[in-house]
Amino acid sequence: MAALPSLQQLRYLIALHEEQHFGRAAEKSFITQSTLSASLRDLESTLDVTLVERDRRHVAFTAVGDAVVLRARDLVAQANDLVELCATARNPLTGNFRLGVIPTIAPFALPSSLATLRVQYPKLKLFLREDLTDVCLDRLLASALDAALIALPYDLPAGIDTLPLFDDEFLFVTADPKLGSAHSPLPIDKIEPEQLLLLEDGHCLREHAIAACGLKSAQTNRTLSATSLITLTHMVESGLGHTLLPEIAIAGGVLSGSSLYARRFTPRGPARTIAFAFRKTTARREEIVELGKVFMQSKGFTGALRAKTARQARKPAAAGGAAR
């Protein structure tokens, strides 16, 4: 029988591929650079192939090296899933759980849900990482996360499954009292694309908002964009344009202290879908389903959310009127 590479060797190879530097890969793996180099040479000897071309300044993976890394990621992830299967069978929702969350969800969905989790599952240690969707999905595939709270639709890579939780409606947000103070919903075809401010490229919320309104990215204001929803609301309050914000953000207080108006659309507003993403091979699927129930039952996702946003849609967030 041919000799097989070890999981540790594959982990070192993955680390080198991610860092593209022997020193950083060794540091990330908590070993010396000489140990990393020796391990990879042994791996190449075992496989009888060159995976990495080396010189003093550069690391270049061969074509077969790149292909091996892809399979190595799957093997390491499946090995981790095997260990988790046994651990969760003994004690579900205990121990460590690594959850990724995108920035347009984290500040608004987490507070009440985490409070509920602490009460219902006191032995669960939730490690959170806030990052963009593509980074969260990459970390999922690399088995660095157990699940990620993301927004759909999104072009998911192979090997990722989702558990939809709820629809998060978009509201029109403006500083203009003529547009914002009307009690009736706003016809969605009344939006002027060139006046629409959105998050910068890379945030899925930007693409969701554009697609939801039937617009094209080039139609929107690309000169001005924001890196966060807080910055976006400040830009709108300064009179630079209008925006679309998700309902959970408004219910979570993103407009608190501002004089902005939030107004619903007609017909019923466009929405994104909040969902858990996870590896199809994960052994923690049942735990993720239970976590989904907690997120759905927590205060932030009940009917109170819709009631609160409905009130805010009928009046400005601050009593002083719109900022001009």
Rank of each mutant, 00 (worst) to 15 (best):
A2L: 05
Q8D: 12
L10H: 06
I14A: 08
Q20A: 12
H21G: 11
H21R: 14
F22R: 14
G23Q: 12
A26N: 14
A26R: 09
K28T: 03
S29W: 05
S29D: 01
I31C: 14
I31H: 07
T35D: 02
L40C: 09
L40A: 02
R41N: 05
D42F: 02
L43M: 08
E44Y: 04
S45E: 15
L47S: 09
D48A: 13
D48K: 12
L51Y: 07
L51F: 05
L51A: 09
R57W: 07
R57C: 03
T62S: 05
A63G: 04
D66Q: 07
V68I: 15
L70Q: 15
D74V: 15
D74W: 02
L75P: 02
A77E: 01
N80H: 09
D81R: 06
L82V: 06
V83F: 06
E84M: 09
L85C: 01
A89Y: 11
P92G: 11
T94I: 03
F97L: 14
I102E: 07
P103W: 12
I105Y: 01
A106C: 09
P107H: 04
P107R: 03
A109R: 12
L110A: 07
K123A: 13
R129I: 14
L132S: 03
T133K: 07
V135H: 10
L137D: 10
D138T: 13
R139D: 13
A142Q: 13
D146Y: 02
Y154N: 09
D155Q: 12
F170Y: 12
V173I: 15
T174F: 01
K178Q: 14
A182W: 00
A182D: 11
A182Q: 14
S184A: 11
L186M: 15
I188R: 12
D189Y: 06
K190F: 09
E194F: 00
L196M: 11
L197E: 08
E200F: 03
D201C: 04
R206Q: 11
A209D: 01
A211W: 00
A212L: 06
S217V: 08
A218D: 00
Q219H: 14
S225M: 08
S225I: 02
S225V: 01
L229D: 04
T231W: 02
L232F: 10
L232R: 08
T233I: 02
M235T: 09
M235K: 15
G239N: 11
H242D: 14
T243E: 01
L244F: 01
I248C: 08
I250A: 01
I250H: 04
A251K: 11
S256P: 01
L260G: 05
R263P: 10
T266M: 03
T266S: 07
P267C: 03
A271F: 15
K280E: 08
T281N: 05
T282P: 09
V289Q: 15
L291I: 09
Q297P: 01
R306G: 00
A307C: 04
R311N: 00
A319F: 13
G320W: 01
A322Y: 00
R324W: 06
